[in-house]
């Protein structure tokens, strides 16, 4: 095992007795794009919250780049090189797009001139001086990604970045995430319901159901797995239905 991984080991998370995650292990290696899918309430967001230090695991460990980060505060986990976005967008509403990204840079001790290329990279240069809250949904999602990237993370956690995007926007997002991996060399752990996007983007996919791993492997392997088809794909046939708002704590 190399040290340049983000690893969750046998993670259990209970919220006041309700089991959200029940012994999940997951690893993201350097430069890898790993997808995380599963039905609503299967624990995807909880897993990202634990990987970024927002939630503390009830049992199990979080190891970032060889350092045991279990129980550390989110800002300390961020300092180990973990950046993230949120399912329900959490921009600094009253600040401009530029300043949102600038905060991401200075919070990790990066230079101020780090910001402009990132805005260009994510197609945000034209709206740099707009107040964040006035942007469209898709633009706001990209600002969140730019803000997380401004801290030069080694691991980027994306929580439903394509939610609310149309097909062409989600195609552009796919290209952007791939380019980010090429240019910055950072690994990506992505949660999304857009299976079309996930199958094309991810090197590996991890499938959760009711807080447990039911399958893990290449997109082709996952697509063919009978357990996945039963738990996820089989029931409705159209698994891209969005999770209802507020369901992220499950």
């Amino acid at each position: 095992m190399t040290t340049a991984t983000l690893a969750l080991r046998d993670v259990v998370k209970r919220f006041q007795g309700v089991v959200a995650l029940d012994g999940v292990s997951l690893e993201v290696a350097e430069g890898e794009i790993v997808g995380l899918i599963g039905p609503n309430g299967s624990g995807k967001t909880t897993l990202l919250n634990i990987a970024s230090g927002v939630n503390r695991p009830t049992e199990g460990r979080l190891v970032v780049g060889g350092v045991d980060a279990t129980g550390r505060r989110p800002n300390q986990v961020a300092k180990l090189g973990v950046g993230r976005t949120f399912q329900q967008i959490r921009l600094f509403d009253d600040m401009t797009v530029h300043d949102n990204v600038l905060v991401g840079a200075v919070a990790r001790g990066e230079d101020r001139d780090h910001v402009a290329p990132l805005l260009a990279r994510l197609n945000l240069a034209a709206v740099a001086d707009r107040v964040a809250v006035t942007l469209s949904y898709g633009d706001q999602r990209r600002v969140e990604i730019a803000r997380a990237l401004a801290g030069s993370p080694r691991f980027l956690l994306l929580d439903e970045p394509a939610a609310g995007m149309n097909e062409s926007e989600s195609d552009a997002l796919l290209a952007t995430i791939q380019a980010i991996r090429e240019e910055q060399g950072c690994a990506v752990l992505i949660v999304d319901h857009d299976l079309r996007l996930m199958m094309r983007l991810c090197d590996r996919i991890h499938v959760l159901a009711e807080g447990r791993t039911i399958c893990e492997g290449t997109p082709d392997k996952v697509r063919a797995d009978p357990l996945v088809i039963e738990a996820y794909l089989g029931s409705a046939g159209a698994p891209a239905e969005p999770e209802p708002a507020g369901g992220q704590a499950s």
């Binding site: 970024s52 230090g53 927002v54 505060r73 989110p74 800002n75 961020a78 300092k79 950046g83 993230r84 949120f86 959490r90 921009l91 600094f92 905060v103 991401g104 919070a107 990790r108 803000r147 997380a148 801290g151």
Partner: peptide
């Protein structure tokens, strides 16, 4: 929450 996640 977002600020802490950025490393502040």
């Amino acid at each position: 929450v977002a600020a802490e996640a950025l490393g502040s």
